[in-house]
Design a binder for these strands. Structure first.
Lengths: 198, 198
DNA sequence: GTGCGCCAGTGACAAAGGTCATATTCCAGC
DNA sequence: GCTGGAATATGACCTTTGTCACTGGCGCAC
């Protein structure tokens, strides 16, 4: 079975890869970031993508969306530190087969991989419950603007980056602030990030 | 050789533990947080403590300080996600033998463990440079103001929290922005946090 | 003891951010 | 084909934020 392992922290990646290689029929390829993983996916077929969410380049969710769009038969298992509700919904929408927290032991990861390969869905129960609660109120533009604002970019930078007028950029941020009951853009970004909507 | 492995993320902990156990003479005990690790240290002697910094209960640095105070012969290797300069200095002061980023592969961890056991110091070179380079230019008030601003509090909130006039609060933030070459308070907070000054 | 540098503190003013009214486009439902 | 809702878009208006000039206190060097 060919597995692509995408995870940016080298120690975690190499440790997981070494362990998975101990399983007789697992053939593991490593990718250090989202971009490298995408290139691998384009070059050769894999049976399974095991990916972190937060990585430089592309996120695990974006990789799953690519696989879905290309109608590749590759199954996807996401592992992540944070059990943010927003991620779970987007992951399910992207056809992800498994969603685990790094809080789970490795045994559980191996058993999840095997379950997903037989076509089952394995979503951490705690996460699933969370995801049923509030859902992401932000539009895509609002999210983009908020993400840039959170990195300290000024309104004019954001407007330029999104090819819109400054007033529009301010408006998106204002809407985000209002939807999230925040005091200002920083507060809004903090709230959105905490919920996994950013 | 008896090793105590303290790391809160179960997947990372169990993966590292399994790999280290493959080495013939490594005997690994796991601790899921700082408090559990401290209890283990009190109950039995270890040759080496391998610890994350950021954990619930006690941090890896605090564990190293305990070992130093108790004059235990246990060596300490710290592994962490963020190479914040502030941590490195405190770790060296606490007599830590090794300081690695999770960005390093597992092989390097094993070789670092062996080196530290022979009495050598292994500090990630990038980290060492960082800690010797720039030093924190912020005054305590500036840091407090910046921390509150980063959480999305308004200037008037900050002024109230620090018992100063709004103008003063704005001035602290302005100085911080200027010292850090930032575009605004958010940018300044991001830079300061990244350098470990917040 | 006087001058210097640094930190703490303030208010006036200019620049950026936040809100609101409003317009256009697109799509789902009738 | 019309209606209503949601997303996108803009500019006018007021509030918050950032900058600057200035004052006072404290410690330290000469």
């Amino acid at each position: 079975m060919k597995i692509l392992l995408a995870e940016d922290q080298a120690m975690v990646r190499t440790a997981l890869a070494s362990l998975l290689r101990l399983e007789a029929d697992f053939q593991v390829t490593e990718a250090a970031d989202g971009t490298a993983a995408l290139q691998q996916l384009k070059q050769q077929p894999f049976d399974l993508l095991l990916s972190d969410i937060e990585m430089p380049g592309k996120t695990g969710i974006e990789l799953a969306q690519y696989i879905q769009q290309q109608k590749q038969p590759t199954k996807v298992v996401i592992i992540t530190t944070f059990g943010r509700a927003g991620y779970v919904k987007r992951a399910i929408d992207a056809g992800v087969g498994g969603f685990l927290l790094k809080d789970a032991p490795v045994d559980q990861l191996v058993s999840a991989i095997n379950q997903v390969m037989t076509g089952k869905r394995v979503i951490d129960s705690e996460l699933l419950l969370n995801s049923l609660g509030e859902q992401d109120p932000l539009t895509e533009k609002e999210r983009q603007a908020l993400r840039l604002a959170a990195d300290g970019h000024s309104t004019s930078d954001i407007a330029a980056a999104l090819y819109i007028a400054e007033g529009t950029a301010r408006n998106y941020l204002s809407e985000a602030i209002s939807k999230l009951n925040a005091a200002n853009r920083i507060d809004a970004a903090r709230i959105a990030r905490q919920k996994g909507w950013l």
